[in-house]
Structures are given as structure tokens and as C-alpha cells.
């Protein structure tokens, strides 16, 4: 119970930190500008402008969410160690894992809030100038939340292990590799005897399989989505985030604060 109080205290402060971060405000503005731009662009398309608005809108929200997750996330723990703001905090009866978990909860909920905000703007935008909002679109938005949350967890993990630059690099690499996880799988299926196949198999298991969180194609073309296509990625997301946080806690457990 006391653990919960402490975790929520860390989470609350981290939430404040993130919400008051300038990166976040700039990126939100950027997203809105891009929505507008997608509308302008779609006017040039001879047909299906609503498809183009939805495509670009969904892409932008995920990318902006991921950019916020990476650039605000990689400084979360390391930045505190660097600026020594962590010292008085860890001088209190707080377990290191409580700190890491609190940081994640606070940060991810702040990102979530911003992300939902962006999607609400997009929904309003689509209902005014686009082709309206379908349940498929909402499903795509839901799964892309997990895509962002996975990146949040990864950024936080690297942040508690190494410097912001390295963390950002690692997170970006994993994010991109994750985006192409299905391509890796496909390559393995087509070339089972490839010399790199064992390495690729390991990579496929380790990288976040973000391909399965992408229902954007299905959303804009009104392709039916089964419940399993939502449930399994959700479970995958929960397990992946938990594992990543576990690694982060273990790495941070005995770390010397320089």
C-alpha cells in the first residue's frame, strides 16, 4: 500500500514534468499543422481525398506520439541523474523499482493524454473535412496507442541504462526495426535457409512487433478487423512493456548515481 503511494507520487510528478515539457507543446502544434497540411494535400488528389486525410492524419499522430515518447523519454531517468534532481528523491524510503515504475506510469499516462488529445483533434478534423469516423478508425487509433506505449517503455529502459543520445539512437533503431518486424518474418518465410536466418529470428523475437499494431490500412479501406486482431496485440503490448520495465528496474537497481 505504501509502495503504491510512493509510486503514484513519482508518477504524478513525472506527469507534471512531461505535461510542462516544451517538446510536447511544439509537437502538438506540429501535429495540428500537419493535419491542416494533409487537408491541403488531399485537395490535389483527384479522388478519395478523405482516404488521404485519414492516412496522413493517422501516420502523423503515431509519429508525433513516438517522437514525444523518444525525445521526452530518453532524458527521463538519465536526465534526473545528470541534473542530480534524483538524489533527494532516492534519499527517501523509495525502492529503485518503485521509482522506475512511477516514472513509466507518469510518463506514459502523460503521453497517452496527449495522444488521445491528438486523436480527438483528428476525429473532429475528419468529421468536418474528411470522410467521417468509422469504428475501424477507432480500432486503428486504439492499437496505435500501444505502439506508442511500447516505444515509451523502451525509451525509459534505455534512459535508465545509458545516456540520452545512445538511448535515443537505440530506441529509434528498435522502433524502426519493429515497424519492419513483419518484413523480417516474411523474409524468413521466403528464405528459411538464409545464413542470417538465425540472427533474424532472434531479432524478430526481440524487437517490438509493431507491424501487428498497424490497422491503419484496414481502417481507411473499411476492411473488417477481428476481435483477435485487437486482443492479441494488446496482450503482446502488456507483456512486452512489463518485460522492458523489468529489465529497466534490474538495470537501475544497483546503478551508482554519479
Amino acid at each position: 500500500m505504501e509502495s503504491l503511494t510512493r509510486i503514484s507520487a513519482v508518477a504524478q510528478t513525472t506527469f507534471r514534468e512531461t505535461i510542462r515539457n516544451k517538446i510536447l507543446h511544439n509537437m502538438l502544434g506540429f501535429a495540428v499543422v500537419m493535419f491542416g497540411l494533409s487537408w491541403v494535400i488531399s485537395a490535389w488528389s483527384v479522388g478519395e481525398p478523405e482516404k488521404i486525410i485519414a492516412d496522413i492524419g493517422l501516420t502523423i499522430t503515431v509519429l508525433v506520439g513516438v517522437i514525444i515518447a523518444i525525445f521526452a523519454g530518453v532524458v527521463l531517468v538519465h536526465g534526473e541523474v545528470d541534473r542530480k534532481t534524483i538524489l533527494p528523491i532516492l534519499a527517501k524510503p523509495l525502492h529503485r523499482w518503485e521509482y522506475v515504475l512511477g516514472k513509466y506510469i507518469g510518463f506514459s499516462s502523460a503521453v497517452l493524454l496527449v495522444y488521445i488529445g491528438m486523436n480527438v483533434i483528428l476525429i473532429l478534423f475528419l468529421s468536418v473535412v474528411g470522410g467521417g469516423v468509422s469504428s475501424g478508425l477507432l480500432k486503428a487509433m486504439y492499437l496505435s496507442i500501444w505502439e506508442v506505449e511500447l516505444v515509451v517503455a523502451l525509451a525509459l529502459m534505455f534512459s535508465s541504462i545509458t545516456t540520452p543520445w545512445l538511448s535515443a539512437l537505440n530506441t529509434i533503431i528498435l522502433f524502426i526495426a519493429g515497424r519492419f518486424s513483419y518484413d523480417i518474418k516474411f523474409f524468413l518465410g521466403a528464405h528459411p535457409g538464409n545464413a542470417f536466418a538465425p540472427v533474424l529470428k532472434i531479432i524478430y523475437v526481440l524487437v517490438p512487433n509493431l507491424s501487428y499494431f498497424n490497422l491503419r490500412h484496414e481502417a481507411v479501406h473499411a476492411i473488417p478487423v477481428s476481435a483477435q486482431m485487437l486482443i492479441y496485440p494488446t496482450l503482446y503490448g502488456i507483456i512486452y512493456c512489463s518485460l522492458v520495465l523489468l529489465i529497466a528496474s534490474l538495470a537501475f537497481r544497483t546503478k551508482d548515481l554519479a
Binding site: 510528478t13 507534471r16 514534468e17 510542462r20 515539457n21 541534473r83 542530480k84 534532481t85 538524489l87 533527494p88 534519499a91 527517501k92
Partner: peptide
């Protein structure tokens, strides 16, 4: 315990 670090770095955003 109460602790005061050598340089008073606290969260600027709070």
C-alpha cells in the same frame, strides 16, 4: 532521514 544534496538541483518545472 532528511538529506540536502551539495548542489540544490530541484525540478525547475515544479
Amino acid at each position: 532521514i532528511g538529506y540536502l544534496p551539495d548542489l540544490p538541483h530541484f525540478y525547475q518545472f515544479l
